[in-house]
Design a protein around this nucleic acid. Sequence first.
DNA 1: TCATCAATTAGATACTTGTCGAAATATCGA
DNA 2: TCGATATTTCGACAAGTATCTAATTGATGA
Lengths: 97, 97
Amino acid sequence: MAAAKRIALSERQLSLIARALADPRRYEILQKIGSSNSVCACGDIRDCLPITPATLSHHMKELENAGLIEAKRSGKFVNYTLRRDVLQAYLDRLARI
Amino acid sequence: MAAAKRIALSERQLSLIARALADPRRYEILQKIGSSNSVCACGDIRDCLPITPATLSHHMKELENAGLIEAKRSGKFVNYTLRRDVLQAYLDRLARI
DNA sequence: TCATCAATTAGATACTTGTCGAAATATCGA
DNA sequence: TCGATATTTCGACAAGTATCTAATTGATGA
């Protein structure tokens, strides 16, 4: 079995994830985080997108709030990792439609 | 192979689908359409959701515009079917993150 | 300690959108 | 043709949100 632990999403989280994915910029951000094997700092993302730090911070909060990413502070920086298990849970849910 | 024909989604359609799925009511509608083996009329959906015909019409247009459902007029009624191929294409795309 | 850089928060604004009521359109049966 | 039923369109409004600038907090190194 590929997924040892299936995550069950509440209706609320389901909705948060769907809305988080609805913004093209957040989709790009997720791709960026997902494509980097290691962690990904805010600055890395800002280098790719023409947005202000404030706007980026807002988007990151949305993604984190949805459970799609995990933030970990490291000194001045904040590193993000993609929660593939949560994303997979969302896909599983959609596939059940 | 399960999917004989892979559908490639444009960035635009990707965004339309994501936004269409972002509304909980539209998610419910999709479930309703998907769960009915045969076609599904507007009235069937209205019986499940406390919304006015105008609002429902609006949602159906969004879903159709995103390519997630197909509408076919049959006399007074309009019947909808879920485009599972499009939904699958969306899932494939998200899984690639 | 202070200057600097990273990130967040606060407040404001413009745009999007979910919703409704009312009017219009479409189709069917009598 | 007329009336009834199904769906759509129009116009409006309220709520949500993506974005910015400016100010703030947090952490590092000189």
